[in-house]
């Protein structure tokens, strides 16, 4: 009986510990001075940040010290880095700029864009959030397909701002439908996430194979979900108009547009 009681206590303690580990809590703030971050991406230990207000891309270290600058970007939004290449969606010029070893080129596209707000590269695939056209353009390695049209039904989009390609999914921040929408790689809608949380502008998204994080811009929150749509946590500490979120080495990074910083969360 005594052993049974001990076992029960240990189970409770173990459960409490594992649960605690899964909760995100504040670790550190990387102050960015005057930089107003929209999107960001990692290149090894450097954080590359799109500074929309000042038409530039900045690389900083973990202390916020500026290491490099790319000027003359026209309202850069949710950037991506893949295999050393930096991809910049330029909201102001309607182009996707690729920067390889400091040399800029324009990514060839099948159609004109109107305010691209997000780009993601995955192996040979690339996906773009085409803000004012309320659609996603996706290249699967062989051909381009168009996903979504303006609306609020399943499969429709209302000002998409960020995007991520996973192994067999495309995850879209469906900003002013206040939700995350997941498509398969044929463009068929699979799932809506965040419908019950009263999101007000889902501006940034990051997904792994089993988790999704979304920035809730107007409500100053970041929401963490299981891939099945179940809400795991609402993060509010140190969040001030968040625009992007990224998970790296089990640390959650969140860019605060109004706060002019990136905050780190651990679990």
């Amino acid at each position: 009986m005594k052993h049974l009681f001990l076992l029960l206590v240990m189970c409770i303690l173990f459960h409490a510990c594992t649960n605690k580990k899964k909760k995100w809590s504040y670790l550190q703030t990387i102050n960015l001075g005057d930089i107003t971050p929209i999107g960001f991406a990692f290149q090894n230990e450097e954080i590359w940040i799109s500074d929309g207000d000042h038409n530039q891309i900045i690389a900083v270290n973990s202390s916020g010290e500026v290491l490099q600058k790319i000027i003359d970007a026209q309202r850069p939004m949710h950037i991506d880095i893949e295999q050393g290449d930096l991809y910049i969606p330029e909201y102001g010029s309607d182009q996707i700029i690729k920067v390889t070893k400091g040399v800029k080129s324009i990514v060839k596209l099948p159609d004109s864009l109107d305010a691209p707000a997000g780009v993601d590269r995955y192996k040979t695939e690339i996906a773009l959030a085409d803000f004012y056209h309320h659609r996603v353009l996706y290249f699967n390695g062989n051909e381009w397909i168009t996903i979504g049209k303006k609306g609020n039904e399943l499969g429709e989009l209302n000002y998409p701002t960020d995007i991520q390609i996973l192994k067999d999914k495309i995850v879209v921040a469906d900003a002013y439908n206040n939700r995350i929408q997941i498509f398969d790689k044929q463009g068929i809608p699979q799932q809506l996430i965040g419908l019950s949380e009263g999101i007000n502008a889902a501006t940034g998204v990051f997904a792994t194979e089993d988790e999704i994080f979304v920035t809730d811009f107007e409500n100053n929150r970041v929401l963490a979900y299981h891939m099945n749509g179940e809400l795991k946590q609402i993060i509010t500490e140190k969040i001030n108009k968040p625009t992007d979120v990224l998970l790296k080495d089990d640390v959650l990074y969140i860019s605060n547009y109004k706060g002019k910083n990136i905050v780190k969360m651990g679990r």
């Binding site: 929309g52 909201y91 004012y132 701002t161 900003a175 502008a201 108009k241 547009y257």
Partner: peptide, 12 residues
Amino acid sequence: LGCPFCAYGLEK
């Protein structure tokens, strides 16, 4: 001019 996505749209 609170939301950058809309503010940059004004510029456009």
